[in-house]
Computed example of a mutant assay.
Amino acid sequence: MTEFGLRKPGSVLGFSNGNADQSVLALIPERNPHYVFQPQQLGIMTIWWEAAPDEPLFISGPHGSGKTSFVNQFCARVGAPVVSLTARSRLDRTDLIGHYIIDKDKSMRFVDGPLTRAWRYGMVFLINEMSAAPADLWLSVNELLEGSPLFIEATGEVIKKHPRARIVMTDNIRGMTDDSSGLYLGRHLQDPAVMDRCWKLRMEYIDASAEMKLIESQIPDIEVHGMTLQSWKKEFALRLRKAAAKVREAYNGTPGVQPIEATISTRVLLRLKDLLIISGRSGRLSVREALNWALRIALTEAVDRTSALTIEKIVEAELGDICTHLAAP
């Protein structure tokens, strides 16, 4: 499991792509050497990957918790190409299977959809925001969720599922449970018959130590003063993660604190890290101005003023003077 950054015995079934078409190989995700896998989620993914190739994996979790990146980084390490699709309200079966187009010479040509490509070439079909599509769409492909051959009505072709083909679905809500937070608009509860066919994996924001390690690993080697670079990286990652934790607490409803309408996801946290370094090294802004500039771009321009002020206050209190150690390039 060392390929996944875990010091434990064991291996994961990988793919040999020696005879694959270059257009298929190009869809193998690029490996991020700094990505941090969580052992529990990786364990479930690995068992599903090897034991249930004919059943989909359904991954739920809050926005920015790393669902898509988790799948892509897993596939990068096992050499699996990924064809992805983001669901929407008007998605229909032809968007998955394929349709005819008119070529330049006016002839008609059938173009495979992402599900057909996965079945034909042995790819992972990654469906993001599953519940944004009508529930009856997934009912219409129930047989394919069980690994059955794919029949293309438009051409009469029958495609047996490639042994490597997999389906992964991600969503912010849990499938058969409504979004009680009201954060995710236009979502559809899924039919029990569909969800019954899926393995389930839940992802929350990664734990403190892993998130700090992730932040620290993605800080470039820059010039700082008043402390060593390694010490600064560790302290900066620690404070930034504490700030994110406090914002998340406020977002989830901390007693005595005005609720806010946005949170700092891991995705936003990494964006904020970059912006704080850029603004702190500019030498043109005060510490507070640099912080507010970074926060506005990373998150707060999209929220109400009360939420923005609350977030700014929390982050400023946790970061303190750590950005004053940044030296101008």
Rank of each mutant, 00 (worst) to 15 (best):
P220C: 09
G147F: 04
D304N: 15
A52N: 09
F125R: 01
L183Y: 13
A245P: 00
G182C: 08
A51S: 12
L150K: 07
V12P: 01
R117Y: 02
K246P: 00
V315K: 03
T306A: 15
D103A: 15
D103S: 14
Q190D: 02
S69N: 08
R288Y: 08
A133Q: 04
D221A: 14
M227Y: 00
M130C: 08
R31P: 00
G18T: 12
E157C: 05
E143A: 15
Y184C: 08
P33Y: 03
M130D: 00
G10K: 04
Y251P: 08
H188G: 00
L185I: 13
M108L: 15
L201A: 10
P163K: 01
L276H: 10
G14P: 00
S180P: 02
I219C: 09
D178W: 11
G43P: 06
I322Q: 08
R296S: 12
K246D: 15
E146M: 14
P329Y: 06
Y251C: 08
S282C: 11
E129I: 00
P149T: 05
D171M: 03
E143Y: 10
I127F: 11
I311W: 02
G175I: 03
K200P: 00
V141C: 13
G66V: 03
R174N: 14
W48Q: 05
A308C: 03
G256D: 08
M169T: 00
P9W: 05
A133E: 01
W49D: 05
F125C: 12
Q230V: 12
W199N: 09
E223C: 10
P329W: 04
I260V: 14
E153H: 14
S279M: 13
P33N: 03
S180K: 13
A132S: 11
E30T: 12
Q218W: 04
M1L: 11
Q230L: 11
L319C: 07
I127Y: 01
D95L: 02
D21R: 14
I127W: 00
A118L: 04
P163I: 01
L13I: 10
A243G: 10
A208C: 09
L201Q: 06
T155I: 07
N128I: 00
I101T: 15
L189G: 07
K67F: 03
E211Y: 05
F4M: 05
E157F: 03
S180G: 06
G156Q: 04
I277D: 10
N292H: 14
N32F: 01
